[in-house]
Design a protein around this nucleic acid. Structure first.
Lengths: 235, 235
DNA sequence: GCAATAAAAATTGTTGACAATCTTTGTTAA
DNA sequence: TTAACAAAGATTGTCAACAATTTTTATTGC
């Protein structure tokens, strides 16, 4: 329940940049790291129990994905997308994800579909139990997992970045308590996937993304800051 | 004509990572840095006249875009895409660039079209003069400039990365002397752009990308290495 | 009490030295 | 001559100390 337990928990230790970047991605997706949160080097060093260089490299990578802003001599902050940037993110998703879904139809194995259905099960379970954080995490991850099924590393990486940024956008512009997605639309996607109907999958995805975009309002801006030590504790 | 002139030329100096990354992108696009070329830190330090840290950060950024491979304890090498990766790059381009072209139709100003036509002029001039390196550079850049017209930073960045990787792929798999694109197809794109016909622009782009993909053969693999000091000299 | 200023603390940026690893060179023996 | 091995050299990875900047705290004057 405290940051340093990171090291204690898996004493094997020495996480590489990829792991650190991924953990921060996760934290952003789950909205445990709201936009604007300062990511100080020393705090991250303690949280992940690694040297400062490792952290700096991780922050650079996150900045190159627009997940954090690196301000000269002032430190790293979780990115706060502007409304213009938000529009770009959604446009990019509308361009890419329907095609990702198409590719997923082409390449989905029975095991893939099973995995997605299992995921959907978790999603609706979290929804029923009112576990908001899990709902957020799982609904975002659905898109990433679908991109995995598409078996294109470039697009997978892209979707991961876009989903993460969407989480930030929803955190800033969405109505409080709004999740990323409605799981029933995810169910429709899986259903079309099983029927191997590329056009329909693409169409549902397009509509789904439009739906998400509808749920946000580009005016009000919440701010927030959290304690890093707690964010990265073992749950 | 030699590396250290870099500093002498613009003594203002102190290039930041963005500039260094961009210059290496350029060099890769123009195939002055063939796949497999070792990018040793000391050589780059001399070439750009910056400290090692700056170079290491730049290499990390390039690695995160799959332009260079970072091998532990062995150094950085210009990426040598496998045939599988090549397929992923082309698939990604087919997914993204037709939509980029569509967006460009939506947002192109008269000035934008003029810029593109001017660029096309340079392209055909280079083609006529048989200046292969310029042909390569300009034909790749056309796609990047089109992405600029689309006014979406995410997609612009994406196209830049994909075009650069395509240069590597052509260098490895393409017939020797093959350029990136045929400029007449670029002319068709501009023409459709002027008519504001989104569907047609997308269709031409799709066909154009297929054409590029056709020109490569996924069997033979050339190797090469060059002298860094010459590559980054002022032309 | 409040604003402005100055000192102190904390944080980030950079550099250089050292350790670890790989590569090359040279030597020896089969 | 070739292969295996050892030493030397070069390159990359890491760390700790220092410099530069920002943020916080304390003080002074109004």
């Amino acid at each position: 329940m405290f940051g340093s337990s990171e090291k204690v928990a898996d004493g094997a230790g020495d996480l590489n940049e990829e792991v650190i970047v991924d953990r921060i991605y996760q934290a952003v997706i789950e909205q445990r790291l709201p936009p604007g949160t300062k990511l100080s080097e020393s705090a991250l060093c303690k949280a992940f129990n690694v040297g400062r260089m490792r952290i700096r490299r991780s922050l650079l990578l996150l900045a190159s994905r627009n997940i954090v802003d690196l301000q000269s001599n002032r430190g790293a902050y979780v990115s706060s997308p502007t409304s213009a940037e938000a529009r770009e993110v959604f446009e990019a998703r509308r361009c890419i994800e329907p095609n990702v879904a198409r590719a997923a139809v082409e390449r989905a194995t029975a095991a893939d579909i099973e995995t997605l259905e299992e995921h959907l099960g978790w999603e609706s379970a979290a929804h029923r139990q009112g576990d908001r954080q899990q709902v957020i995490r799982l609904s975002g991850e659905f898109h990433v997992k679908l991109a995995e099924v598409a078996r294109n590393h470039i697009m997978h990486r892209m979707v991961k970045e876009l989903v993460t940024r969407t989480s930030l956008i929803i955190g800033l512009f969405g109505a409080p308590g709004t999740a990323n997605c409605h799981d029933d639309e995810h169910a429709d996607i899986i259903s079309a996937l099983k029927q191997r109907d590329q056009d329909q999958v693409a169409q549902i995805m397009t509509h789904h993304l439009q739906h998400i975009e509808t749920q946000i309002d580009l005016t009000a801006r919440r701010n927030a800051g959290v304690d890093l030590t707690n964010v990265f504790s073992d749950e």
